[in-house]
Design a protein around this nucleic acid. Structure first.
Lengths: 252, 252
DNA sequence: CTGCGGCCTGACGTTGCGTGAGGGTCAAGC
DNA sequence: GCTTGACCCTCACGCAACGTCAGGCCGCAG
């Protein structure tokens, strides 16, 4: 099968466009493959026209096949040019690569679907808000597991958009109040701060649904990505510690 | 939130490398985004150094987020530059696109896995043979359903590599015999041709496993892609018709 | 002889930057 | 004041796999 390129000159020869039609490629592509050293014409006519023989046609079909499997031209050249470097190995590598790609794409798809769903549910036509929630999800991807994210999403679905919006609108006020109390060095056990703490805890539970794992992941997120979280929520580690202290002092 | 870019000059300003560090991008990338009109510095220092404010940082984070969702720079520009063209819509489109991509990749992965498996099973270190079977699978993808391909693969697994190899080696002889009979215009009912027909049918059944659907798909393949099939197997429509006739005359 | 289709060789455009080349700028130490 | 490193600037080429002209030669039919 491995015929040498120096075939007998009595074999039928084809022009570029004929080869292109037979393989479904374009003439330009054949030029390109020649430039890359993938496929040289068997000969040239007097006028310099490219002429391909059956060996070239066969080789081109091999090239097309490998290209359809996702190999780059460079890899194809390596597979076809030398006899040695085992096509089977290349196939195995390609399978591994593609598997990773598929996994990543699927994860991305899941994220996108979650975000898009959220955008539709919330009637969020406001780009600013939407971008903020996208960024929130970006960070959350780092700290929550897939199951946790799924749980959170389902919880969001059951709560409904108005409820979520209400919660989101409540946060700034509570945060500001807590921050003020911290700045004024009020006693976390004082009645005023305890009231804030109760509201704070309620809002947190609104998000965590009382799930301890989610609570832990959230705490980790605030600890590790303190700068970002402060920028997004206004909660810095000091405030977090103060609020936690106040909540721990709640009696009920 | 939608602060104009013309912020007050008292805001803290950052240099390129500072912005790069904060966003995990490279300086070159920031240059690129500026060239593409995605993100212009808030100002330039006397020496021409790029200076970014908090608005630019925010915008850049949005850009990064959208890029992570798979949008192209052009799309991001469209989403961010004008307020109008609804990000939610773009998200929906992106979901659709990605879904299609994932499906295609998964199909390709399945094909690759089948081929790689076959390469490992058959100890096929011979690139020529492997390439031929890849091409066979390429064509088969066109005519067989996924279930059929799965059935064929499983049948191949149960038969084992030696059996398959034996079948493949038997074919050329049978085909040559049948072709000779056709050329000599021998009676399909004659004892000699009937013997060939019986062997032919056996080989076909070895492949189809007696599955009528697979048989039909195979026939379609030989009909629609006659040229290719002739090149690969040596069976042209005329020979196929002759063989079919002979098989239909078999008595048992 | 002219026209039309096919072929040729450059060579630039695309996407998202990486990677220098060649040359100013800035704060610090001598 | 001078040097040294760390930064910064603006070109500008490179990659992958071709698409898409531009300008011009070849060959055959009318």
């Amino acid at each position: 099968m491995a015929l040498p390129a120096t075939g007998n000159s009595t074999m039928t020869l084809y022009t570029v466009s004929q080869i292109a039609r037979r393989t479904g490629l374009t003439v330009r592509t054949l030029h390109h493959y020649e430039a890359k050293g993938l496929l040289n014409p068997a000969a040239r006519s007097g006028a310099g026209y490219r002429l391909y023989g059956s060996y070239e046609l066969l080789r081109l079909q091999h090239i097309v096949s490998l290209k359809m499997l996702g190999f780059s031209l460079k890899e194809i050249l390596a597979c076809l040019d030398v006899e040695a470097p085992s096509l089977a190995e290349a196939l195995a590598r390609q399978v591994d690569r593609l598997r990773e790609v598929v996994v990543r794409q699927q994860e991305l798809l899941r994220r996108l679907e979650r975000i898009a769903q959220q955008a539709i549910n919330g009637e969020t036509i406001d780009s600013e808000t939407l971008l903020n929630s996208i960024e929130a999800s970006t960070i959350m991807e780092k700290y929550f597991t897939h199951e946790q994210l799924e749980t959170i999403k389902q919880r969001g679905d059951t709560l409904g958009p108005e409820r979520i919006k209400a919660v989101e609108q409540s946060w700034p006020h509570v945060i500001a109040g807590m921050q003020a109390a911290l700045t004024l060095e009020k006693d976390p056990a004082s009645e005023e701060v305890q009231l804030l703490a109760r509201r704070w805890r309620t809002l947190v539970r609104e998000f965590t649904g009382g799930n301890a794992e989610i609570q832990r992941s959230m705490n980790t997120m605030f600890r590790e990505d303190a700068a970002t979280m402060q920028a997004k929520t206004g909660i810095d580690p000091a405030l977090m510690a103060y609020a936690s202290k106040a909540i721990s002092l709640l009696r009920d």
